[in-house]
Design a protein around this nucleic acid. Structure first.
Lengths: 190, 190
DNA sequence: GTCTATAATACGATAGAC
DNA sequence: GTCTATCGTATTATAGAC
């Protein structure tokens, strides 16, 4: 799964994280991937094809990304698990930043490009579901619908905090504290 | 205040809501506004100037928009006030949709264009402060820092729910219920 | 599958008349 | 202040060799 095509998709993710979806230039992508422009057209037909494939790639990678973290959780402290998984999205590690930026771009692009919505909705749903499960473990007395709603709120909040962070409106540590406060509020209310 | 310059800014807001900030073409803006391209450069110097002025315009209009709702609030029920003002951002009225879309675009663009950040941060701060005031009235026993944090969370959540709504991931009425739930959680925890 | 070279055009920006 | 006309270049996309 690490053929030339995949290399290009990885490069495209980096370029999108750096310049945004609409800032992606095929020429710059070619340079980043270390191939010629025409090879990109050979693999993806046109610019729209590049975007479609890359956004699919980002959704898939986001799924894998959170899935890989599961082994590190502690079964004896579900609340700490929850906090850990949620705070994972607000870190200054390059990979997290790249993923968050690309994901935010994907989300913002979908407002204008209905083609992207299906993948996006599916990936979002997977994420929400995962958080709802963790909430159910941290708060066994709550109902399933309450957990689902809290999960939707917490993930939407993370997306909101994330753009504020990435757009320089909110220091990272402050964003993290706000998220912790929201977890407190959700668990206290539930 | 409805001179040619303002006409162009209104047109710019419409184009941004339709195509996104990075989808805005000076030529298309000119057509939308019914003027020549060069007139736009006369008024705004360059593309960045258009964006800067339009962001300012959108922020001001958002302020006016919420300010206009103030007379309707009831001083005897501060919690209802709070809910009303927050839910204002999640409505299917054309003007709200246009403002939300444009605002979301500016937020997303600021991730890649540092020039936009200062105005954006200021407008965000104004909004957060306004919500913190309403929270203080709805929850007189809470502390000022707690109100500030809750206001940051609630406004960030609205932005997160708003993109999900506009990107077709979340039905509007569901988004509204989630926001109501968050207000409950914040007031219960505070 | 991958490259070099190039065509076609979209786009930002300016010149200059009125 | 507003227009028409145009320039320069950045960018998408294709042709054709290997």
């Amino acid at each position: 799964m690490s053929d030339r095509r995949t290399e290009i998709l990885k490069a495209a993710t980096r370029v999108i994280a750096r310049r945004g979806v609409r800032g992606l230039r095929v020429g710059e992508l070619a340079q980043e991937a270390g191939v010629s422009t025409s090879l990109i057209y050979y693999h993806f037909t046109d610019r729209a094809g590049i975007l479609r494939s890359t956004l699919e790639f980002i959704s898939d990678r986001a799924d894998r990304y959170t899935a890989e973290q599961s082994p590190q959780t502690r079964p004896d402290d579900p609340r700490a698990d929850l906090e850990q998984v949620l705070l994972l999205e607000l870190q200054d590690a390059p990979e997290v930043r790249e993923n968050s930026t690309a994901w935010g771009e994907l989300r913002a692009s979908a407002v204008f490009e209905p083609d992207l919505r299906e993948d996006l909705a599916r990936a979002t749903h997977t994420w929400v579901h995962e958080i709802a499960d963790l909430l159910a473990r941290a708060d066994p007395l709550g109902t399933a619908p309450a957990h689902a709603a809290a999960a939707e709120r917490l993930t939407a909040l993370i997306e909101g905090l994330s753009v504020r962070w990435l757009s320089g409106c909110l220091p990272l540590d402050h964003a993290r504290r706000l998220l912790e406060g929201a977890i407190d509020a959700e668990l206290a209310a539930g």
